[in-house]
């Protein structure tokens, strides 16, 4: 397989994942704005921060408003992480790796693009927003489904999965990074209704409300949320889950070379050093420092994968 193709697959699936994540962040933001408990503008600020696009937004807008924030996250061509840009880039990468993916995956990706282009052709009104986001998420889910259902389990699939889980881990870590202060032990005692809304927003941003309820019932506290989103290996968006999938796929890729690839060693190190303890150890380390560390480690791992598998040279 060409290094260029591995790179294209990696980014195709990173962008698909990012499109879904951005869509989910918009949904969660819209939801909290409707509860009227918090300061809505501050919430949109943290949504833009979680999507890592706040500086770009501020470059183009004088003030932070809900409508402008949603439009920037959803449709802006100037925002490389907007839902529209992500889907367009996923498709562009799919064209580049057309020979590596099945016809079904290509057509699903192309259909997702054509649908998004239609649905997002004009500014989406508040009333139409849930339906628009729903349609788009359905289409990206179709790509995921076709990937599962039609692709061979070979290195092509491994690179698709690696792109997916690196992006997902990064996304979960960034949501925690922006909201870590509501999860700190000092905030625990408070438990105001505002805190409750904040906690729920975090869970909503990673589609984890149902799973969390199933696991913890009504005992929703910051300690449990932190445990769930960082360490729970059954939760498909937790850092531990993503890292364990990265490890699996890097191990399959390295099957021929006795596990000597530096990227595999790095992912093993991340799991052993940072994700094998209990949640108290994380609070002792400092939640914010821990999340910062995870973001750095993920970026470093991504770079190492590029080198090990000759993405560029």
């Amino acid at each position: 397989m060409l290094g260029k193709t591995a790179n294209g697959l990696f980014w195709m699936y990173r962008y698909l994942e990012r499109a879904e994540n951005t869509a989910r962040l918009i949904e969660a933001g819209q939801r909290i704005a409707l509860t009227r408990l918090g300061d809505s503008d501050a919430e949109w600020r943290s949504v833009l921060e979680s999507a890592a696009v706040l500086p770009g937004y501020l470059e183009q807008h004088d003030e932070l408003t809900k409508d402008a924030a949603i439009d920037y996250l959803l449709r802006s061509r100037d925002n490389a992480s907007s839902v529209m840009s992500c889907i367009a880039q996923a498709r562009q990468n799919a064209r580049l790796v057309r020979t590596a993916i099945t016809g079904e995956v290509w057509e699903a990706t192309n259909a997702a693009y054509m649908t998004a282009r239609d649905v997002l052709a004009r500014k989406v009104s508040e009333r139409d927003l849930p339906a628009a986001l729903g349609t788009i998420r359905q289409h990206t889910a179709l790509v995921r489904g076709m990937t599962h259902g039609t692709m061979l389990r070979n290195e092509i699939y491994d690179f698709a999965r690696i792109g997916t889980f690196l992006e997902r881990a990064d996304n979960t870590a960034r949501i925690l990074d922006v909201k870590y202060y509501v999860l700190l032990p000092s905030a625990r005692a408070v438990g105001t209704s505002l805190d409750n809304v904040q906690w729920e927003t975090i869970l909503r941003s990673v589609s984890a409300r149902g799973g969390f309820r199933m696991e913890y019932g009504g005992r929703a506290g910051p300690r449990e949320i932190t445990q769930f989103l960082i360490l729970d290996k059954r939760m498909p968006r937790s850092l531990a889950f993503c890292v364990s999938k990265l490890k699996d796929n890097l191990r399959y890729l390295g099957a021929g070379d006795n596990g000597t690839a530096p990227s595999l060693q790095k992912v093993n190190h991340i799991e052993r050093m940072y994700l094998s303890h209990d949640v108290e150890a994380i609070f002792d380390f400092g939640l914010h420092d821990f999340i910062q560390k995870m973001l750095d480690l993920m970026a470093d791992l991504s770079r190492q994968i590029e080198i090990d598998y000759r993405f560029y040279e």
Binding site: M1, L2, G3, K4, A6, E155, L253, G256, Y309, R310, E313
Partner: peptide, 10 residues
């Protein structure tokens, strides 16, 4: 002396 393509394995 051959034209070679860059794969993930060299």
């Amino acid at each position: 002396g051959r034209v070679a393509m860059r794969t993930t394995r060299g």
